[in-house]
Amino acid sequence: MTAAGATGPAVLAAHGVSFAYGADPAVTAVDLTVTPGEFVALVGPNGSGKSTLLRLLLGLLTPDAGTVELLGHPPRALRERWRVGYVPQRRILDLDVPATVTEVVASGRTARRGWWKPPRPADRAAVEHALDAVAIADLRRRPVGALSGGQQQRVLIARALVAEPTVLVLDEPIAGVDRESQRLFRDSLVHLVEHHDTAVLLVSHELGAVADDLDRVVVLQRRVRFDGPPSELAATGVHLGVHADDLPRWLEDLQA
């Protein structure tokens, strides 16, 4: 899966990153890199620090120790922030908004275009492309609030893709998504990695349909417990299937 040149400079990097909420450490001494065209999953049970690490990587939190780099820059120093595509958890958003699919997807292009500029033909073409990429072109005029969970998830992915990002970060994109949407979701991620050299970091406690397509899996439980190809993890008896049930057991054994 990894595209040629995947060993280039990291698009996302954490070096010895630690963060604590008050006295409770959330992540400790985490090293993580994602290179262009790489498809990486960050997995771990609930409370393992995944969301905290994600927020640190996106520059929404500042580490207590260590450094984070987005496309070679500290997050605050990166000027082209739109090159980092972000798909938040659908469940934390208020999607009961009176807005069409097209309007929500087009809003993802605002930062790249320049927030003071009106849309140009290239922006409209990018919206069409993004709608096609996740197979929601036929839903374009529907209000997002009237869509199924899986369809809403694809709208959020299209909103991230419309800026044509260098790296795409997805937070729990599979949770509560129907099987058909999972398959379309998997196809669009694989397409991005293979044809657009986009790096993908998927943060999830379940991997569903994408488990077989990953270049690397990073298992987090406050620290990085595993970082390697899925086959190596499978060799230890952990199968990252639908619910990754093996993972918590494996982590317990590891600590024993």
Binding site: R90, R91, D132, A137, D138, G150, V177, L184, S188
Partner: peptide, 25 residues
Amino acid sequence: APAPGTAPVTGRDPHEDHDHDHPGS
């Protein structure tokens, strides 16, 4: 609208056969 996690409203997605060979690939 169906609850999150259920099948899409349309039943069959109109782009089921979409092979992602879309413009600009």
